[in-house]
């Protein structure tokens, strides 16, 4: 059985206004998902209202000089070449885990994040394992 759902394509600049309108109409944040398309990330924000799922799809361009080199250990990644995305945590507080995940797995720099784990939500052997350009795999040194 097909579940009732719609996906609305919007410009990145419209995102916050759209999310505010969902908040005003009492939608529940169901999930945030990113997909690496090579030159950009496809972002999908899904909201539920009484069983009906509505998703917003927008694209975040990846800068041409983007490089996902590891940041300082345990510290925030402030590399200016990382793609930046405005957080929706001021509108939906529950987005903090999704947005920290976007940072930790994809290397997307979140701006205005209410609770920033500074890259410590996921402990991965490879930094940003789902990002478009992978950091080098760590190697073990033997004596």
């Amino acid at each position: 059985m097909t579940q009732e759902q719609t996906i609305e394509n919007i410009a990145l600049t419209e995102l916050l206004d759209k999310v505010r309108s969902f908040r005003a109409s009492k939608h529940r944040l169901a999930q945030i998902c990113a997909t690496d398309l090579g030159d950009k990330y496809e972002l999908l924000y899904s909201f539920d209202l009484q069983g009906k799922l509505t998703s917003l799809r927008t694209y975040l361009p990846i800068p041409a000089n983007h490089s996902l080199a590891p940041g300082s250990a345990g510290g925030p990644t402030t590399d200016a070449t990382h793609p930046h995305l405005q957080s929706i945590s001021s509108i939906y507080g529950a987005s903090i885990l999704y947005e920290n995940e976007l940072h930790d797995l994809f290397g997307i720099q979140m701006d205005g994040l209410a609770v920033d784990f500074h890259g410590n939500l996921y402990k991965t052997a490879i930094k940003y394992p789902m990002g478009s350009k992978k950091a080098p795999t760590p190697t073990c040194e033997t004596k």
């Binding site: 930790d104 784990f117 410590n120 939500l121 996921y122 402990k123 991965t124 394992p129 789902m130």
Partner: peptide, 12 residues
């Protein structure tokens, strides 16, 4: 909170 102790990368 802190999670990530058993992240397996299954989505990848």
């Amino acid at each position: 909170p802190s999670i990530g102790f058993i992240h397996r990368g299954l989505e990848r």
